[in-house]
Amino acid sequence: MFAYTTEDVLVWAVRKAINTLDWVPDSLSGNGTDTEGPEFDALDTARMDLIAAAKLVDHYSDGRPIESRIDIEDGVFTTHVWPYRATNLGEQLLYTNRRSADPGEDHGAYSVFANESTCTLRVELHEPRPRHLRRV
């Protein structure tokens, strides 16, 4: 089991907050919410402050990276913030998603796996479904 410090917990919380502050405005604007205004400007300022602080530390006190990035396909990547206290020491599926495609096309899917003990990410690409099995 990995030991952790108070700084590790704070650094982890900052990275998780940055990811949330990156995702929420995009999600809201995609749902038709107007994200132009002082409230969203304040969120963006807070996000930028957290990013500046996060650049000061890139590894936990035990030497593990705080965050990893892996390319899924050209122009598509994912990041993962490692927990400050690794509890799952084997490879686990994080999520599966469809690969980018124009409407009506199927380029298959991908699965992202994480291993907390080695702080490694792995992407598995899946072929498109046969046309007769696709949802319309």
Rank of each mutant, 00 (worst) to 15 (best):
M1T: 12
F2E: 15
F2C: 15
A3V: 12
D8S: 04
L10V: 13
L10H: 14
V11L: 01
W12P: 01
W12C: 06
V14P: 01
V14L: 12
R15P: 05
A17N: 09
I18W: 02
N19F: 08
T20I: 13
L21V: 09
D22Q: 07
P25E: 03
D26I: 10
S27C: 14
S27V: 13
S29D: 04
S29W: 00
S29M: 03
G30K: 04
N31Y: 04
G32S: 03
T33M: 02
T33V: 13
T35M: 00
T35H: 02
T35Q: 05
E36G: 04
E39P: 05
E39M: 09
F40P: 01
F40G: 01
F40S: 01
D41F: 10
A42T: 10
A42M: 09
L43P: 04
L43M: 13
D44I: 01
D44Y: 06
A46P: 05
R47A: 03
R47F: 02
R47K: 13
M48F: 06
M48Y: 07
D49P: 04
L50W: 02
I51G: 01
A52Y: 03
A53V: 03
K55P: 01
K55C: 02
K55G: 03
K55H: 07
V57M: 00
D58A: 03
Y60C: 00
Y60P: 00
S61P: 09
S61C: 08
G63H: 01
G63Y: 01
P65M: 06
E67D: 07
R69H: 06
R69S: 08
I72Q: 04
I72F: 03
G75K: 06
V76D: 08
V76C: 08
T78H: 05
H80S: 05
H80G: 04
H80T: 02
V81D: 04
W82D: 00
W82S: 00
W82L: 00
P83Y: 03
Y84K: 00
Y84H: 09
A86Q: 10
T87I: 14
N88R: 11
L89R: 11
L89Q: 14
L89I: 12
G90V: 12
G90C: 13
G90R: 14
G90E: 15
E91L: 04
Q92G: 10
L93D: 00
L93F: 01
L94K: 08
L94M: 10
Y95D: 08
N97T: 06
N97H: 13
R99C: 05
R99V: 03
D102K: 14
D102W: 12
E105L: 12
E105T: 13
E105A: 12
D106S: 11
D106V: 06
H107L: 13
H107D: 15
H107R: 15
H107W: 10
A109C: 11
A109T: 14
F113T: 11
A114M: 05
N115T: 06
S117F: 10
T118V: 04
C119K: 15
R122S: 05
R122E: 08
V123A: 11
E124G: 07
L125Q: 08
H126G: 09
P128N: 09
R129V: 07
P130L: 07
H132Q: 14
V136H: 15
